[in-house]
Computed example of a mutant assay.
Amino acid sequence: MSNGKLDETDQKILEHLCIDARVSNREIAESMNLTEGTVRGRIKRMQSENMIRIMAIADVRVQTGYENPMMVYLGIHADLKGVKETAKEISRLPFIRFAATMLGRYDILAISFIGSNEELIEHINTDIMTIKGVRHVETKLAIKSLKYNYRWGRVIK
């Protein structure tokens, strides 16, 4: 199958890879009553068609260097004339993990991880509010993460 869509067999192969991407093609094939070559070929096709990417995902504590990182959502109000440029500047900040222009309450939404409230205040006052076009920043701290399924993969532009 090669129409840019995942069929039922592809989905089942992905279920195995989502649990453990290091699982062997042979193990997947045995559990699905397929040949190893079939599994290998399907994985190779999905990779070559950019349908999947097998990669390591580091623990957020390792990525940020914080023992207990706090996730913060930054709702940014910006001058509408230059919102694209403002959003690009915000996305270039090294502590920003996600940035998008929005419709609705905020013009830009950014997500970051911080180690302390003081660090958040510093980032907002020194880094974000000094960017041309930023008018106001609303912050929301995630106090308890209920669900985050990193297996959904990257958010595509």
Rank of each mutant, 00 (worst) to 15 (best):
R40D: 00
G41E: 04
R42P: 00
R42C: 01
I43Y: 02
I43H: 00
R45H: 05
R45Y: 08
R45D: 03
R45E: 09
M46I: 02
M46Y: 11
Q47M: 13
S48M: 12
S48C: 00
S48F: 00
E49Q: 11
R53D: 03
R53L: 13
I54Y: 08
M55Y: 09
A56Y: 13
A58T: 02
V60P: 14
R61W: 02
R61Q: 13
V62N: 08
T64Q: 06
T64L: 07
G65K: 03
Y66A: 04
E67G: 04
N68L: 09
P69S: 10
P69A: 08
M70A: 08
M71D: 01
V72L: 07
V72Q: 10
L74Q: 07
G75D: 08
I76K: 10
H77W: 00
A78H: 02
D79P: 02
L80I: 10
L80H: 14
K81G: 04
G82R: 12
G82S: 13
E85C: 04
E85K: 13
A87K: 12
K88E: 15
K88N: 15
K88F: 11
I90L: 04
I90Q: 06
I90E: 05
R92C: 07
L93Q: 13
P94N: 13
F95K: 03
F95L: 05
I96F: 14
F98S: 02
A99V: 13
A99K: 02
T101Y: 10
T101V: 13
M102E: 09
L103W: 10
R105Q: 10
R105Y: 05
R105K: 12
Y106Q: 05
Y106K: 05
Y106M: 07
D107F: 07
I108F: 11
L109V: 15
S112I: 11
S112Q: 04
F113T: 03
F113R: 01
I114S: 04
I114M: 11
S116W: 07
L120C: 05
I121H: 05
I121T: 13
E122Q: 03
I124V: 15
N125E: 12
N125Y: 04
N125T: 12
T126E: 15
D127K: 15
I128Q: 06
M129T: 02
T130N: 14
I131T: 09
I131C: 08
I131D: 09
K132V: 09
K132H: 14
G133N: 14
R135D: 14
R135K: 14
R135F: 09
R135Y: 14
H136C: 02
V137E: 07
V137M: 08
T139C: 07
T139L: 04
T139D: 04
